[in-house]
């Protein structure tokens, strides 16, 4: 007799990686909150933590897709820089060299340029990964260097200022019912990213390719085209992140993004997405991205030397990957 049934919600909940990651995050907040309740649980701390994490979150959503296909994208931080530079320069160019006083038309134009710049790098990554079968690590290591170099060439190695006031005040520091607009935008991107991954055919094919590429191909899934689209998505989101950083810092900065790629990868992996591909979620990524952010904030507030933060993140990261690996090994031995 056949006995086919689903697992109960309880089994699903406790089987899910995301639950444990969420608990770790809550525990961290609780510990810091217990030590300094006056400083930790304030709107200000919450707001700044969220704002500082928004840009990274947008990068990480794209990275989640890439890693689920068993790929990697080291170029996101450089693409962010490149897109910020092209966007700021384009906005300046249509406003006689200084866009500070420009209106929303310029801002929209700048957004378009940022997205297209990101898309171009994403497309290049995708085509190289999918068509030439060069390992993604190498392809995106190349564009990691090339995108940054191209940005520096364009801007002569210096930051680009002249960001429209309306952009900086609106998206950069504006709020909506007390919630920073930057956070709202990141939340919207994340929500759409999570829904597409979890409920659509695009998402399903992303998992299938990461789980067994050959099986996906034999099942008639257009693996090459799909991989191109996934890297394209990561590039477009990096372009958007560049635009967000531009709005927030009021300048397209060349420096300070060398480790964005690693931070995004760490967040995705902490969030339970497997580097071996085939498994993971955007919800997990949200939690994973906030673990390092909360650690950093918490260390500052309770007065621990902040240089402990990367060490603490490293320990959690290695533990997370080790856990994933042993889980897979146990499964594959059946």
């Amino acid at each position: 007799m056949t006995d086919v049934r689903g697992r109960s919600w309880r089994q699903r909940l406790f089987g899910a990686n995301t639950l444990w990651i969420g608990l770790v995050l809550l525990a961290l907040i609780a510990v810091f909150g217990a030590i300094r309740p006056d400083a930790v649980l304030t709107t200000f701390t919450l707001q700044t933590t969220l704002v500082e994490t928004s840009v990274l979150l947008v990068l990480s959503v794209g990275m989640t897709y890439v890693i689920i296909t068993a790929g990697i994208d080291l170029s996101v931080g450089s693409v962010l820089v490149f897109s910020g530079v092209t966007s700021a320069m384009a906005m300046n160019a249509v406003n006689d060299g200084n866009a500070t006083g420009a209106g929303w038309g310029t801002v929209l134009f700048g957004l378009l340029v940022a997205l297209l710049s990101g898309a171009a790098w994403g497309l290049l990554n995708g085509l190289l990964v999918a068509w030439t079968r060069i390992p993604p690590l190498i392809v995106t290591l190349g564009s990691f260097g090339a995108a940054l170099g191209a940005g520096q060439l364009l801007s002569n190695g210096s930051n680009v200022s002249g960001v429209p006031e309306v952009l900086a005040d609106g998206l950069g520091t504006g709020t909506w019912f007390g919630v920073p607009n930057l956070v709202l935008l990141a939340a919207a991107v994340t929500a759409v990213g999570a829904l597409v991954l979890a409920t659509t055919r695009f998402g399903r094919h992303t998992y299938a390719i990461g789980s067994n590429e050959e099986a996906a191909r034999r099942a008639g899934i257009g693996v090459t085209g799909h991989l191109v689209r996934v890297y394209l998505l990561a590039g477009v989101l990096a372009g958007l992140a560049g635009f967000m950083a531009l709005a927030y810092f009021r300048v397209a900065s060349i420096t300070g993004h060398d480790t964005d790629n690693l931070n995004a990868i760490a967040g995705v992996v902490l969030g339970g997405t497997s580097l071996f591909g085939g498994a993971g979620s955007v919800v997990g990524t949200v939690l994973g991205v906030f673990i390092p952010a909360v650690l950093r904030k918490g260390f500052v507030i309770v007065g621990v030397n902040v240089y402990w933060q990367p060490i603490a993140v490293a320990i959690v990261l290695v533990a997370a990957v080790w856990f994933d690996q042993s889980r897979r090994k146990a499964r594959n031995q059946r």
Binding site: Y207, A208, A216
Partner: peptide, 25 residues
């Protein structure tokens, strides 16, 4: 075809594998 190496996606559930490449919308 049932391939000798099965060609299934181990991370997806049986229903997802049955409908692989032919997902219902």
């Amino acid at each position: 075809t049932v391939y000798q190496d099965l060609a299934v996606a181990p991370d997806l559930d049986p229903a997802a594998n049955l409908f692989l490449g032919r997902e219902l919308r």
